[in-house]
């Protein structure tokens, strides 16, 4: 198992990806300076291999979410480029779907309407979009809650709605901004497993922002470690944990624990400085 793991000292371009195809997302020399002169990103370069889950991890305030929002087309980069399937990103697009840290559900709409909202905005007719939405509500484990309102659900259930909404539009790339940050620990583990199961059925490319090392190692094919802001890529690692073993075994697996430790050492340098 450890044999599969590889670590590259040269981050970004050239990092071995899953199958050697063109990356789904290519980020080159990305910088972002906010008005007021705050430099959040100081030149990020890394590839996101197709069909894999790439986590972005780094000290808080290092621009993880900023990076994700630039990929999502929600904010503009100051310089550098983001390419999705070789095409530069200029704004939001149907090839990418976002999952928000605070869920971003419409409180006045039912679960079903929230899940169908992406399709509604694309002009899919009501019957068809509700059928699709129902299927995804079912897939994320919320069957029976179609007509509930977000305030009637727990945090974990709300994020399941957010996930179903993102899956329902059938985008190739899922952008997840600390999706489990507002969910408590027990539910978080269950949710991570459900996410992996769903992703294995859907074959999506995922960019996953997290501040939890354990979570990054557990869910990722590739982990991008950022330095403190203005951030650059410190290291790209590929834990390659064999998830066939079942979650309880994985969390006791020495390889898994090694990776957690390695990433922690990498990050600790930036905390202490």
């Amino acid at each position: 198992m450890t044999g599969r793991a590889s670590i590259t000292s040269d981050p970004g371009v050239g990092a071995p990806s899953g199958d050697g195809r063109e990356p789904a997302v290519r980020i080159v020399e990305l910088t972002k300076e906010f008005s007021g002169g705050v430099r959040a990103l100081g030149g990020l370069t890394f590839d996101v291999p197709r069909g894999e889950l790439t986590s972005i991890i780094g000290p808080s305030g290092c621009g993880k979410t900023t990076t994700l929002k630039i990929v999502g087309g929600l904010i503009d980069a100051t310089s550098g480029s983001v390419e999705v399937d070789g095409v530069p990103v200029t704004g939001p697009g149907p090839d990418r779907a976002f999952v928000f840290q605070d869920f971003a559900l419409m409180p006045w709409a039912t679960v079903l309407r929230n899940v169908a909202f992406g399709l509604e905005l694309r002009g899919v007719d009501r019957k068809e979009r509700e059928e699709t939405a129902r299927a995804y509500v079912d897939k994320v484990g919320l069957a029976g809650f179609e007509d509930s309102y977000p305030h009637q659900l727990s945090g974990g259930m709300r994020q399941r709605v957010g996930l179903a909404r993102a899956l329902a539009v059938d985008a190739d790339i899922l952008l997840m901004d600390e999706p489990f940050a507002s969910v408590d620990e027990q539910i978080r583990r269950q949710f991570q497993e459900d996410l992996l199961r769903l992703l294995s059925e859907e074959s999506k490319t995922v960019i996953f922002v997290t501040h939890s090392i354990e979570e990054a190692v557990y869910v990722s094919d590739q982990v991008v470690i950022l330095t403190r802001g203005p951030s650059s890529v410190s290291k790209v690692v590929r834990p390659g944990i064999d998830r066939g073993a079942g979650s309880d075994d994985i969390r006791r697996d020495p390889a898994y624990l090694d990776w957690v430790e390695q990433i922690w050492h990498e990050l600790r340098d930036y905390l202490e400085r």
């Binding site: 929600l74 939001p92 990418r96 928000f100 605070d102 971003a104 419409m106 905005l121």
Partner: peptide
């Protein structure tokens, strides 16, 4: 208005 609701709308192409 929660800014992420607006971002949500934009990201889904509103």
């Amino acid at each position: 208005v929660n800014p992420s609701l607006v971002e949500m709308g934009r990201s889904f192409g509103a």
